[in-house]
Write a protein that binds this DNA or RNA. Sequence first.
DNA 1: CTGCTCGGCGCG
DNA 2: AAAGCGCGCCGAGCAG
Length: 667
Amino acid sequence: MNAAVAVVVTVGADARSVRLQPVDTAGEPVGVPEQHGLDGFADRVRVLEAAPGPRLRWVWDDTAIRYPLLLERGVRVDRCVDLRLSRAILRASAITSATPFALAPPSEWDAPRPVALDAATQSPRAPQADALFDLDFAAAPPAAEPALSAGPGAEPTPDSAPDWSQLRTGSGVSPEISGVIPVEPGRPNNSARTHLTNPSLTNPTTRTAERTAPALDPLTEHRAQLAAVAAVAGAAPHDAARLRLLLAAESAGALAAAEMRHVGIPWRADRHDALLTAALGPRPTRLGDRPERLEELLVRIRTALGDPAANPDSPAELVKSLQRAGLRVRTTRQWELERIEHPVIEPLLQYKKLSRLMTANGWAWLDAWVADGRFRPVYLPGGVVTGRWASEGGGALQLPHQVRSAVVADDGWCFVVADASQLEPRILAALSGDAAMAAAGRGRDLYDGIVASGAIDTRAHAKVGMLGAMYGATQGDGGRMLPRLARAFPAAVSYVETAARAGERGDRVSTRLGRTSPRPGDDWLDLQDASRADGAVEPLQVRARAEARSWGRFTRNFVVQGTAAEWALCWLAELRRRLWALPADPTDAAAAETSQVADPDARLERRPHLAFFLHDEVMIHTPLSAADAVAAEVREAAAAAGRILFPGADIDFPVTVATVDSYDRAK
DNA sequence: CTGCTCGGCGCG
DNA sequence: AAAGCGCGCCGAGCAG
């Protein structure tokens, strides 16, 4: 019998009982299942995570729902399989598209994810002691093809595997547990927000299909997912390996997301309030009143327009007011207004700026989202089709620079903030194997390198040219640079051009690790068909052509943005593992040597931890004493991410690192 | 009143 | 300088 490498977690319908079933590399049960209550579950996970030998992988339906149960109890896990996220990838990927798993009709597993658990129940508990973790995410040295120790296929040595014969069997608990995963009590789902999940899950082809009866058994689902990857491993071992890496990285990201929500972003409400007051005036006491500064600006706007009813809060009304005053504007967009000479422009732009600050990140935001000195947004791993994260609530991924001075590290702590320099063009260089572009970026700013190559005259032109190539710009400076870039970097440019043409045909494209773009919608397909039919009128053909190009720009960008997201996930997963391996107190050499089981500071929030992640940027909240070590790990994790994703490709992925006490001081 | 789209703008 | 990707959120305004 194979050894247990993972444990499938099934939560009962009452959300209080948990069944743990050890499984082997094929997902087949080995050993006796256990029954636990939630506290017993957490205790058991703590013990098993601290055991010597390879870490187990916890297999559950949804990290965002299950992991908070552990974090609230002071338990961190090293690795998991997030079945919902993995399923979305496997069902959509071109690599597994011919498997029964991908061809089966949608099930309840494909339903929109329930809203994440409310964190209000998170309460500080006594520090728990005994955890020793060693995430072996992609720990193997790079090989000719992706190093893939991360997948569930990794074989532990039999003698190091956990001895499940020692496990207690659940006594006094019904052995029969419903396979139905309850929808957790979250906020009522009555918001205008309609897609909480990757749109590829809810695209027309699956949305309209009939759903089979619910069968939410994690054990069955896990086995099916492993089988889907195994089915392609024979004919396409490298593709299967990449997919395994993607699943491991996606799941590791889900762990990081839950942990970041758990610990929160340190937020000084007093500083935030002070900056709001400085910009807007004191907080109005009556709801709906404008603050002083906005009121003053409103008077100036109305005076300048000679229109006592002018309303800058309504774009439609404002355009009419401006036109009545003789200004030739079609919209009220900032860049259009900036070009006009008129006394109203200055106060109007200022009004819009301050109004934006107040409505998006003003006092109401502070009341709603900051509690106990922390901002805890909901991160949605895989929330963007390309694989980027989305967020829900508080606009976590759009924090304006204006308010970042309120993000202040705790006393005796600091932030290590790092971002990957020119990530997307470097990703494109690696994806396409463009040696000239790789050379341009080696050991220096990539855009400077492009200028040095003689292809483009200035750094600014190099930047908009590269962005234009990756976004599909046809006009302006971005579009004008394209021929020169194509001459100097033919492999890179033809790579994105090929992706664009695929999209224009309605074909799908894939990232490095196998995340595949959604099919175009039925409307798009119908339009293309109609434009090709006999007697199609020209306006229809023009529209179809425009839509085709638009979808081509999406697929063009998908391969780059999506692969960049994969790099970032690998960076994050590596970093998460490395941070946990740091000694709690780096000045204590003895502690570094001895096991963390005895570490009294085993809680995540008492050690250097990830606090924020933004596409190509991470923020770590760390004790001052560990800041240098953290900065080193950030750089090494970035280098490791490059090796994992592009083994043997000599591409630099430099990161800029800043150690600061508040977020506004980074960059 | 709710539910929805849109314009505008914040982030990468 | 202002078109070229991916998001979330806000208020206004409209339909029901």
